[in-house]
């Protein structure tokens, strides 16, 4: 892996996009290394998709610049398009066409010679496990099949950089695992991948490095394990009766800083590690706090997220 900016597949400097008054992407700097899986993690509306649309030439930056696959997205969009593959959010696929017809259309649009179109189509259908469904209309596909076809479409011209915008949103767990496996395989073959996700587990499992994006800004960036280590302490989450909450809070504060948790629960980052749990329970008992439930969590990306933004990603969805 090389780290010099000149040959990184994706490089953004102060990349900005405003929609009227709304700063959808508010000056992000990032660099993705060749052969890496890079994850954009953030809630809905954080600016992930807007950033991806700029990096893939679909949207013009208001300010700043981005170099993708060696070319500036604003000045050489065609060169960029020729080298990148993109699977868009919601797998925008025409439901009236069959899978293989779409692949053939895509092949023509990317200038694949006619002699190779058929074989390339067959090869990609097989790769994503859709050979049997290739002649069926996309309207009859399941969500997982559509995503896999979407992925195949984005691979038609063997791109060196692949963008996946929320590739597994709305998929069942099995389909999600299949897609992850395919992304890993592509990455092993040398494709650099940038994926956006609102799933902590996806970022944790798949990405070599992640950037946490919130309100248009990158608030943390690094390897998942490093980020988690920075947050450090495990989180103790307690559930107490409503009228005992204030008493519980003052007890917990003796052991570390409070952390944002789901509504109705209290969380504290244990300064001295998990071994002090018995002390916490004793102190709560002495304060006559009635304990309903207690759990201890090793630091997760959600803790990183909460630490960086002051709110939780998982709680947002419910």
């Amino acid at each position: 892996m090389t780290n010099s900016p000149s040959n990184s597949p994706i490089l953004a400097e102060n990349l900005t996009r405003h929609f009227g008054e709304v700063k959808a992407v508010d000056g992000i700097d990032m660099q993705v290394n060749a052969g890496e899986i890079f994850g954009f993690l953030g809630p809905n509306g954080a600016g992930k998709s807007t950033a991806v649309r700029m990096l893939t030439t679909l949207l013009r930056p208001t300010a700043g610049r981005a170099i993708v696959a060696g070319f500036d997205v604003a000045t050489h969009p065609d060169e960029v398009r020729r080298r990148i593959g993109v699977a868009l959010q919601d797998a925008a696929i025409d439901p009236l066409m069959t899978g293989s017809e779409l692949l053939q259309l895509q092949a023509v649009l990317y200038g694949i010679p006619s002699s190779q179109t058929k074989s390339r189509t067959a090869e990609l259908l097989e790769r994503v496990g859709l050979t049997a469904a290739g002649d069926r209309r996309v309207g009859t596909y399941s969500g997982g099949m559509r995503r896999r076809l979407d992925l195949a479409l984005s691979l038609i011209h063997q791109p060196t950089v692949l963008f996946l915008d929320e590739p597994t949103t709305g998929l069942d767990p099995m389909s999600r695992l299949t897609l992850w496996e395919e992304v890993r395989r592509l990455n092993r073959e040398g494709t650099t991948v940038l994926l956006t996700t609102q799933y902590l587990e996806e970022a944790d499992q798949l990405a070599d490095r992640i950037a946490i994006i919130d309100k248009g800004k990158i608030v943390r960036e690094g390897k998942p394990q490093d980020l988690k280590a920075e947050v450090g302490f495990p989180t103790l989450i307690v559930n107490v009766q409503k009228d005992h909450q204030d008493a519980a809070r003052s007890v917990l504060l003796q052991f570390g800083e409070l952390r944002p948790t789901a509504e109705g629960t209290l969380g504290v980052g244990l300064r001295d590690g998990a071994q002090v749990v018995t002390d916490v329970v004793r102190k709560l008992d002495e304060a006559h706090v009635h304990l309903i439930h207690l759990e201890i969590n090793e630091p997760s990306l959600d803790d990183v997220f909460a630490d960086a933004t002051g709110h939780r990603l998982e709680g947002d969805k419910s």
Partner: peptide, 16 residues
């Protein structure tokens, strides 16, 4: 409809 559902974006992503 192509523009609404995003299929047009896919076409625009191609170097055509």
């Amino acid at each position: 409809t192509d523009i609404q559902n995003g299929f047009f974006d896919r076409l625009l992503l191609a170097p055509t």
